[in-house]
């Protein structure tokens, strides 16, 4: 703790308040996780008995399996494509002329600032026009539109700290531009690539509103959860939520503690 922040009681109040805020953030999720292990047919806290009953239910239900399958399929298609499009764009911005770089950067991240409801509405419209709604042909590009900006940002940040003379050194040693990028630049900016990939996967996996417009018969996991929730609050929803949470939390922790978010080390140092 640094010194010089005055008397201890305001500081203590600050600590207590912040802990309460964190409790507010964490407790609901913790309760959700605990409840998901109930053995009863209804939700209550604390559960009278524990077991994996609802996880078994989730794993055996074809509805949930299909929904998870579709969500994973979309995310698996979206992640590499997003990484490729975003990384190409980030390279283009990094290596292109200074003039116009700012505005092109703004274009590349512009889908981020638009409310997803409006984006979803627009994409639904063009999907109807092309007759591809309710298919992967609509889901994947739609998700890409919101994931690519994150890759542009994370890879772009890595490229900014990348020393281009490394690439020149490789070229002077006999590597063509492409081999220099492949052997030197990409490995060095790997943290940015990993961050971009994880962002893309999670965002696609969790995406709701755009898919909600596009889907009629097909159900992704968030859509299935939503319709189940609207119909009835059953312990199975807690179980599937916990599973989702586990996946995203693991990926998030990977990002955070390897210091890839927010320039990691620099801010935390």
């Amino acid at each position: 703790m640094r010194e010089g922040y005055g008397s201890p009681w305001p500081h203590r109040a600050l600590v207590v308040f912040s802990l309460l805020v964190i409790f507010f953030l964490v407790a609901p999720l913790a309760i959700l996780v605990i409840q998901s292990f109930t053995n009863e047919s209804y939700l209550s806290f604390p559960p009278p008995s524990f077991g994996f009953r609802w996880y078994r239910e989730v794993f055996t239900s074809s509805d949930w399996r299909d929904a998870v399958g579709l969500s994973v399929l979309i995310a698996i298609l979206v992640t590499p494509l997003s990484l490729i499009l975003g990384t190409l764009a980030a390279f283009g911005l990094d290596r292109g002329p200074m003039r116009g770089r700012q505005s092109l950067y703004a274009v590349m991240i512009s889908p981020m600032v638009l409310p997803h409801i409006v984006l979803g509405l627009g994409i639904f419209r063009i999907a109807l026009q092309l007759n591809i709604e309710d298919t992967l042909l609509a889901f994947v590009p739609a998700h890409l539109t919101i994931t690519v900006p994150f890759v542009v940002i994370s890879v772009g940040a890595s490229l900014q700290t990348f020393n281009v003379t490394l690439e020149e050194a490789a070229m002077s040693l006999g590597a063509s531009r492409w081999r220099a990028v492949w052997h030197i630049t990409l490995p060095v900016i790997r943290p940015g690539l990993i961050a971009g990939a994880i962002f893309s996967f999670i965002i696609s996996f969790d995406e709701f509103i755009i898919t909600f417009f596009l889907a009629t018969y097909e159900q992704t996991l968030p859509l299935e959860m939503f319709s189940t929730l609207m119909f009835q609050v059953k312990p199975s929803i807690a179980a599937i939520s916990t599973l989702t949470l586990a996946v995203t939390a693991a990926l998030t922790a990977m990002l955070m503690f390897r210091g890839q978010i927010l320039g990691g080390g620099r801010i935390v140092k």
């Binding site: 020393n163 490394l166 050194a169 490789a170 070229m171 002077s172 006999g174 590597a175 531009r177």
Partner: peptide
Amino acid sequence: IPPHRREVGLVFQNYALFPHMSVYKNVEFG
């Protein structure tokens, strides 16, 4: 002719060693 077909050995001010490769791998690269 592009740099990689010129047979020149280049040493930079900041050395430009590949940070993700060992000394051996750095020297072996060319």
